[in-house]
Design a protein around this nucleic acid. Structure first.
Lengths: 233, 233
DNA sequence: TCAGATAAAATTGTATACAATAATGTTTTT
DNA sequence: AAAAACATTATTGTATACAATTTTATCTGA
């Protein structure tokens, strides 16, 4: 028997307001880990949930597939991506490369507006955490990093990082162990350092921050929910 | 009157064999500069050219849009992307970041198979150049870099670089001046250095190589064909 | 009972039809 | 003749219909 997820596909996706567009809701559902890796994304079901035709569902799935958040098997449908150990490490390496470049650019170069926006992101993240909504907290943690890349002012960095962060959520879902959220104060520390403007310190903080991510993963552990689905299918 | 391209949409896309899939043929057409920046990509026309329904055309256009090779304006259709000066510089910066990481990984770590593949790519590029087919030469030059990233063994690097290289083709189409192809021997030099295994030398060569790209562009020059189309529309 | 073959159902892939919006052309008015 | 208003056409956005493929269920024969 294939492992089933704690929530049904419908439950996982429906919990948000109806006004966000379909891509975004699917994207967020995955980032918030309401849709586990390897979950099959049935087009008809999703169409019914969102109250639209399969056309729009397919568009969203294809976009998610382009971002490596979803994988599409020809004639066999779309599944939430499930990066293996090798890929997971490559993703974290790539993230470090981009994020170090981001802090290099942003260090000492943040305007008041950007600083305020970053602080707001942290506040929202902590709020979600306080409410026990770990999924939202995780997603907002990612959004902080994206916001930082935007502040750095290099659009390709933003685009690339967005994809890498999405995949990081999948990695955490698959290999994550302890509470990643213990590292949430590090975002505030990072902001302080960026304002102070010492590039060496900023780089060190970012490396340290991402290092926590790595150490919070157990790549030896057999992948959890849904992994068999892929092996058996 | 809007500027028109030297070739019609049909001519630009039809010149290749019929067996490649639609996305690939559009992608290559843009990379080979048969489709200039700002060219409108009419869905019905493309559907007729490729002998398929608009459904498949739209899929390809949306994928290209996700890669920033095409931009889609709501209710107004798809256009070949035309990065402005600011974005162009950001793209080249991002490329340097990724490609330096790639050579760092690949330096001294290339297997015989990969070396042979890289040499083959250079040979194909030179062949196209010798035949005066600059479009194909330019595309293959890009493929060399992608191949190198593959050899480095980090999949996210490959994905990110693929997008950046595509956009580089657009940048060259818009701002390119002299013969970029004079730098084609540098690919062979790079291979030699990668085999030799000196990371400092490899990094310097790559920086130099990408530097040529920058200097071959005149970012002050008013953007050429098709730029008015965007301003006026 | 179980393996294999066959039939039914479900799912994805593609084309077509219709709706909504934008672009174009024509008429009307001043 | 110029500008505005309207009608027409073309183009994109979405839903539906059909085809191809896979998955599941049923049947058959050792």
């Amino acid at each position: 028997m294939l492992p089933k997820n704690t929530k049904t596909l419908v439950e996982s996706v429906k919990e948000k307001g109806p006004n966000l567009d379909i891509y975004r809701r699917l994207f967020d559902s995955i980032l918030e880990q309401r849709l586990a890796p390897n979950t099959k994304l049935n087009e008809q079901d999703l169409a019914q949930v969102f109250g639209v035709s399969r056309t729009l569902i397919r568009q969203s799935l294809q976009r998610l597939a382009a971002e490596q958040v979803v994988v599409m098997h020809k004639n066999r449908g779309a599944y939430v991506a499930a990066p293996d150990v090798v890929l997971a490490k490559q993703i974290l390496d790539a993230r470090e490369l981009i994020e170090l470049a981001v802090v290099e650019l942003a260090c000492g170069a943040l305007g008041e507006t950007e600083i305020e926006a970053l602080r707001m992101m942290v506040a929202l993240e902590e709020q979600a955490f306080a409410h026990g909504d770990m999924g939202t907290a995780l997603r907002r943690s990612g959004e902080f990093h994206v916001r930082l890349a935007q502040a750095a002012g290099n659009q390709p960095y933003v685009n690339m990082l967005r994809g890498l962060i999405s995949q990081t959520s999948l990695i955490i879902a698959m290999y994550g162990q302890g509470e990643i959220q213990c590292a949430r104060d590090e975002h505030n520390d990072l902001i302080k350092a960026l304002i102070a403007g010492d590039k060496t310190v900023c780089a060190k903080l970012m490396r340290h921050h991402l290092g926590h991510l790595r150490t919070s993963c157990d790549f030896n552990r057999r992948v959890k929910s849904g992994s068999l689905a892929m092996v058996l299918s």
